[in-house]
């Protein structure tokens, strides 16, 4: 096919979007709605996973030095932790000196009498370490145990909680993939049905073109362009709808969370995902438009 003809057919497809207003509108509404629902579900999944991951990130390896650890032993551990931070194993850490430990204990107990006879010297230095990757915890703890200054009975790490969260994230990932797959399938069915209807309404037109001697591609191409344009418009529309709806939901939920004292639950900013959501929408919308047109026209080409 000549470039000139392709240009002509592309123009034809674009003009058909306008000429068949009602059917274009029906397809547009279907594509927009399904992509909108898809976008919101996607954002929900992203938020749940991000919050769970954030939980995981809060888990700390807590350990204390022996009360009688020598200055050298203290120095060794301090250097190890600092080095681990430098090479990225440790994301951040908090150091608790004997004095701070003593003060904290006093504050926690709220009863001076229980602290009688105790001084800062009876308390051990502690480190609260957040690892960059929680999967490194076993290795990190094994290394800690090698230091003579570290009290092996006072290394704690909420491993069970980590496993629980990891398990939940894993299950949630599966559920997310499943829900998305089902939603996509429904979208494909819904959209291609609408396109099939629009093509069916114009089957006579296709038949006439065949009788006049048009090749299959000559007939198909404008329909494909039409599907592409409607898919693209639907993607843009649903993007803006998703953006507005998400913003609205986010504001509502954020104030709800803070009134329920659950402000550690964070909803992601839409901006962080906007490009990805837009890309997914455009790619999905356009390919559905193209595929739907291609398949629906095929049925009527056998004249």
């Amino acid at each position: 096919m000549k470039i000139r003809t392709l240009r002509l057919l592309a123009r034809e497809g674009a003009a058909n979007v306008y000429k068949n207003k009602l059917m274009s509108f029906a397809s547009l509404v279907t594509i927009t709605t399904t992509l909108f629902v898809l976008g919101l579900v996607l954002m929900f999944i992203v938020n749940v996973i991000t919050n769970l991951e954030a939980r995981k990130q809060d888990l700390q390896v807590k350990f204390y030095l022996k009360v009688d650890a020598s200055a050298l032993e203290q120095e060794e551990v301090a250097m190890f932790i600092e080095k681990s931070k430098e090479n990225g194993v440790v994301a951040e850490y908090e150091y608790e000196s004997r004095e701070q430990a003593y003060e904290n204990a006093k504050k926690d107990l709220q009863d001076e009498s229980l602290m009688e006879g105790l001084t800062a010297e009876n308390f051990a230095e502690g480190y609260f370490v957040t690892l960059a990757d929680q999967n490194d915890s076993d290795e990190f703890i094994a290394k800690l145990k090698q230091f003579s200054g570290v009290d092996p009975d006072w290394i704690t790490y909420p491993k069970q909680e980590l496993e629980k969260i990891t398990g939940i994230v894993r299950v949630f990932n599966y559920v997310a993939v499943f829900v998305l797959a089902v939603l996509m399938m429904i979208s494909v069915l819904l959209i291609s049905n609408t396109i099939r209807l629009t093509v069916f309404a114009r089957r006579k037109e296709i038949e006439i073109m065949k009788y006049v001697g048009a090749s299959d591609w000559f007939i198909r191409f404008p329909f494909i362009i039409e599907g592409m344009i409607i898919g693209f418009l639907g993607a843009l529309l649903s993007y803006f709808l998703t953006y507005e709806a998400y913003d609205w939901i986010k504001n509502g939920l954020t104030s709800l969370f803070s009134s329920l004292m659950m402000s550690d639950l964070q909803l992601m900013e839409f901006g962080r995902f906007s490009v990805r959501i837009l890309l997914v929408n455009v790619l999905f919308g356009m390919s559905i438009g193209v595929l739907g047109s291609f398949m629906s026209v095929r049925k009527h080409l056998n004249v």
Partner: peptide
């Protein structure tokens, strides 16, 4: 399509686009 292009076809119901 090539065969049909070598023919001119007219129908009872006109079949215009």
């Amino acid at each position: 399509p090539y065969l049909r292009r070598s023919l001119g076809i007219v129908f009872q119901d006109f079949r215009l686009l």
